[in-house]
Design a protein around this nucleic acid. Structure first.
Length: 539
DNA sequence: AATGCGTTAAAAT
DNA sequence: TTAACGCATT
C-alpha cells in the first residue's frame, strides 16, 4: 500500500513529534488506518461475526484515540474512503483473495483446536467493511465529531482539506499510515501515531527547502515529487521492473522533467516498459493531482486541483479513470454517510427498517466498479432512492440519483438532497439534545457495570420532552421524500448484540396531506429506553 | 558497488 | 502488516 519504500527513503525528513503541537488546530484522520488497527484487536469475532460486544472493540479503539486528540484540544476531522478507483481494481482483488485464503486457513486451525494459530490468521483476514464505517459514523454523529466520506480516495480528500485554510473547513495536518499522502502533496503528515500521541512527522516544506540533508529535494517541486512516487510504484500503477524509489529519485533529479524521464526510460529499458506505460503514468499522476473530492461548502464534487485544458487534451478528454462523476445530490448523501459508496445502496439505519429500504437500482455501463442493473423491490409506500447512471453529452460517465416513483422523475434533485440533510440535521439535533438534558437520577446507572474510564460509559437517561417534539414536527413537515425516519441512539443493547436498537421512531406519513409525527417506543424494556452512551474517557 | 526484490522476524492489543 | 536482512542482478 502506498508508495513502495518511500518512508524509508524519506527517513532524513522524518521527525518524531507529539500530536499536541497541533493543539487548537483541525487535524484530518484517515479513518481506514485506525479502523484497520482497531479491527486487529477483534479480528476473529469480526470474521466469524460472533462474540457479541467484543466485535465492537474497534469502535472503542477508534474513540479512545479521538478522545486523546480532544484532550489535547485538537479538532479531529475524520475522513472515510468512498468508492474504489478503476485502476485500483487489481490491487483490491488480490487483497480480497489473500484474505479469503487466510480466513479459510484460520477456520481449519480453529477446528484443530489451535485458537492462537487461528487468531494469527484471522488477523490477516480482517477487512474493514462499509458496515463498520457506518457504525463508527453513527457514533461520530452522536459525539459531534466532524467527518466526511470521500467520493473515492480518502487520501485525496485529506490532501484537499490540507490545502484549505482552516476557517474554510481546512486542516493543518493528517494522521495516517499511508505514504500516498505525501504523493498527494499533503503539507504535513503524522505517521505511526500511538495511543499517547507520539508519532513520526514529515513536513513537505522542510523536504523542499532543506539544503543539508541527503537525498536533497532542493530542485524538486511537488509535481516532480509526485512523478518520482509514481515511477517508484504506487497503488494505481506498478513500477517498471528494476525501478525502485532510488532509481526513480535519480531519474527525476537528473532530468527534472517527467516527459524526459519517460523518454529515457523507454530508451534504456525498451522492452521492459509496458506498451501503454506513458498513458498509464499520466493517468496515475493525474489521480494524485486532480482526483475527485467533495467540496463541503459547495456540496458537490470537484477536482483536487482544476484540470488544465492542455492536460485534458493529452488525456483525450477522458477522465473516467478518476472514477465516474457523481452528481451533487448523491455526492452529498455519500459524504454525509447516508449511502454506501460502494454499493450505492442506502444504509440500513436499523435492521428493523429493512423492509422500508429498497435496493438501489444501479445501471452502470462502463467500469467494473458498479454493479449492472440490480433488481428493485421498491414497495410503493416505502420510498427511498433509486440510483441510476447515464452518459452525459460529453460521453463521460455520470452517476446520479433519482427518486423511486415515476411521478417524481426528473424533479428536484435539490429537494431530495435537502431532505437528506434535514434527516441528518434531525438526527444530530435529537441525539446530543437527549444527553444534554438535565439528569433524572436514574436507578439504571448501576445496572450497567461499566468501568468509569470505559469509553462506552453510560452518560444519561432521558426522554425527549414534549416541547422538543414541536420543533421536530416543524423540521419534519418540510421533508417530503423520506417517509420513515428513525432517530439513532446507541443503547446498552448495542454492546451486547450487534444490532443497535431504535429508541425512538418518528414516522412520517407520506400519503396524507399533512405530515404527522408519530412517536412510538419500540422498546418496552425500561432499561434501554432513552439511553445514550458517551465517550468521555480520561486519556 | 548499489539497488531491487524476496523472505523472515516482530510488534501490539 | 511493516521493517530489516540478505541474496541476486545490473
Amino acid at each position: 500500500m502506498g508508495i513502495k519504500d518511500l518512508l524509508r527513503f524519506m527517513k532524513p525528513y522524518v521527525e518524531t513529534a507529539h500530536i499536541k503541537k497541533y493543539a487548537g488546530k483541525r487535524v484530518g484522520i484517515d479513518a481506514y488506518s485506525w479502523l484497520h488497527k482497531g479491527a486487529y484487536s477483534c479480528s476473529m469475532e469480526l470474521c466469524l461475526n460472533s462474540g457479541g460486544d467484543k466485535k465492537l472493540q474497534y469502535l472503542n479503539y477508534f474513540m479512545h484515540r479521538i478522545n486523546m486528540l480532544r484532550h489535547y484540544k485538537i479538532t479531529p476531522v475524520v475522513v472515510f474512503d468512498g468508492g474504489n478507483l478503476p485502476c485500483k481494481g487489481v490491487t483490491e482483488d488480490e487483497r480480497h483473495k489473500r484474505r479469503k485464503t487466510n480466513r479459510d486457513q484460520a477456520m481449519l486451525k480453529l477446528k484443530e483446536g489451535n485458537v492462537a494459530g487461528a487468531i494469527e490468521l484471522f488477523q490477516r483476514a480482517v477487512s474493514v467493511t462499509p458496515s463498520m464505517a457506518r457504525q463508527l459514523i453513527q457514533i461520530l454523529k452522536s459525539e459531534n465529531i466532524q467527518f466526511v466520506v470521500a467520493p473515492y480516495e480518502a487520501d485525496a480528500q485529506l490532501a484537499y482539506l490540507s490545502n484549505l485554510e482552516e476557517e474554510k473547513n481546512g486542516i493543518v495536518a493528517v494522521i495516517s499510515e499511508d505514504s500516498d499522502l505525501l504523493a498527494y502533496g499533503c503539507p504535513a503528515v503524522f505517521f505511526k501515531m500511538d495511543a499517547h500521541g507520539n508519532g513520526q512527522e514529515v513536513v513537505l516544506d522542510n523536504v523542499f527547502s532543506c539544503v543539508t540533508r541527503v537525498p536533497s529535494f532542493r530542485h524538486f517541486n511537488k509535481d516532480l515529487f509526485t512523478g518520482m512516487c509514481v515511477l517508484a510504484g504506487c497503488d494505481f500503477l506498478s513500477s517498471v521492473p528494476g525501478i525502485g524509489i532510488t532509481k526513480a529519485y535519480n531519474l527525476v533529479s537528473k532530468y527534472r522533467n517527467l516527459d524526459r524521464v519517460l523518454s529515457m526510460l523507454k530508451f534504456e529499458k525498451g522492452d521492459q516498459v509496458p506498451e501503454d506505460y506513458t498513458k498509464s503514468f499520466r493517468e496515475a499522476v493525474a489521480v494524485f493531482h486532480h482526483a475527485r473530492i467533495y467540496d463541503v461548502s459547495l456540496k458537490r464534487i470537484k477536482h483536487l486541483k482544476p484540470v488544465p485544458e492542455e492536460l485534458l487534451q493529452l488525456l483525450d478528454e477522458e477522465l473516467d479513470f478518476l472514477g465516474p462523476e457523481i452528481l451533487p445530490s448523491l455526492a452529498t448523501a455519500i459524504a454525509q454517510g447516508n449511502i454506501d459508496p460502494c454499493t450505492m445502496e442506502a444504509f440500513n439505519v436499523f435492521p428493523s427498517t429493512v423492509n422500508h429500504v429498497s435496493t438501489a437500482n444501479i445501471k452502470k455501463i462502463s467500469g467494473p466498479f458498479f454493479r449492472q442493473e440490480t433488481s428493485t423491490q421498491a414497495s410503493k409506500d416505502s420510498s427511498v432512492f433509486a440510483i441510476s447512471s447515464s452518459k452525459s453529452k460529453k460521453e463521460s460517465t455520470v452517476v446520479e440519483m433519482k427518486q423511486a416513483p415515476d411521478e417524481w422523475k426528473g424533479s428536484l434533485f435539490m429537494e431530495e438532497r435537502e431532505c437528506l440533510e434535514e434527516a441528518v440535521a434531525l438526527q444530530s439535533m435529537l441525539c446530543p439534545s437527549i444527553s444534554t438534558r438535565k439528569e433524572k437520577k436514574s436507578q439504571q446507572t448501576e445496572e450497567l457495570k461499566v468501568p468509569h474510564n470505559n469509553p462506552f460509559r453510560k452518560r444519561r437517561v432521558e426522554e425527549i420532552e414534549p416541547d422538543e417534539m414541536d420543533s421536530v414536527t416543524e423540521l419534519v413537515s418540510e421533508i417530503t421524500e423520506v417517509e420513515s425516519l428513525e432517530v439513532v441512539c446507541i443503547t446498552p443493547e448495542s454492546q451486547k448484540s450487534v444490532e443497535s436498537k431504535p429508541v425512538k421512531r418518528i414516522e412520517l406519513k407520506r400519503d396524507t396531506k399533512e405530515k404527522k409525527v408519530k412517536r412510538s417506543n419500540l422498546e418496552s424494556s425500561e432499561s434501554n429506553k432513552n439511553t445514550i452512551l458517551n465517550f468521555f474517557s480520561p486519556v
